[in-house]
Design a protein around this nucleic acid. Sequence first.
DNA 1: ATATAATAGTTTTGTACCAAACTATTATAT
DNA 2: ATATAATAGTTTGGTACAAAACTATTATAT
Lengths: 142, 142
Amino acid sequence: MKVHRGNFLYALNWIRQRLFAYLESEMSKENIGDITPSYGEVLYMLQRKGTVNLSDITKMSHKDKSTITGVINQLEKNGYIIKKRDNQDRRFVYIEPTEKSKKVQPALRNISEKMNSRLFKGLSEEEKETLFKLVSKISENL
Amino acid sequence: MKVHRGNFLYALNWIRQRLFAYLESEMSKENIGDITPSYGEVLYMLQRKGTVNLSDITKMSHKDKSTITGVINQLEKNGYIIKKRDNQDRRFVYIEPTEKSKKVQPALRNISEKMNSRLFKGLSEEEKETLFKLVSKISENL
DNA sequence: ATATAATAGTTTTGTACCAAACTATTATAT
DNA sequence: ATATAATAGTTTGGTACAAAACTATTATAT
């Protein structure tokens, strides 16, 4: 896809969509069929941080809290996490990963690695750095 | 937003989302309230091409035909286009922009320009070229 | 000529989000 | 002490998309 000023937004859209489709198919191959890529992302985050609350995830993921509420509820329903109200400050909900969650981590990490290898194939380290820098820069404009 | 290999996908997501929000707010300021940004995109395309069929739009937009069917139907409902079956080959549906569509074009063009100025603010021409080239390159990997 | 394949577009179903308005709880300000 | 602010999370309603299975029509292959 030839990208230029006039189709930049739609290029982003397309790349994003392709990556999600890839993640979904890889997860299905690894028999992770009860969660979708966006749940996998949050799960992956949780594992690195241990117990966190919903706002922490919101901040880390750059997604709206209402989105995260939905993701967390699905993860709980499928046994990947446990929700617990804080007894000191009952506004907070803490999220604890379960054993099931720990079990899928290696596969998720693997899929994430494969996705990146595929996405950045043919780019030098320098080009990757440049790309990340430029994307950071435009993200600051918004 | 500091972008790196580990959050590239979510950075794209975020940028995309911010741009859509911007488009929506600008369209509303220009009193284009009966269509959303993704309709605006298709309308903008139509104007440059004259009469086209649904598949042409699918190809130009890199979106699924089922998505385009929906967009086109909404545009018709709001009086921006007219759908016409080809009488030679009755599989084809031709899309014709109406006067109403022509009237909003200048505003749409303007909004699109403003969005780009904002998005790429602070980038040199060279940096923009680099960005487009790198994004093209990764899109080829998918 | 007729069964099969290809093509254009539609319908159905589902994911990934967000914004605004809401509830519940805790902090603060006078 | 109590009204008001702020904060954490939830609910409701909506947009932007895609994939798969479908209908209708035309092309092709034997």
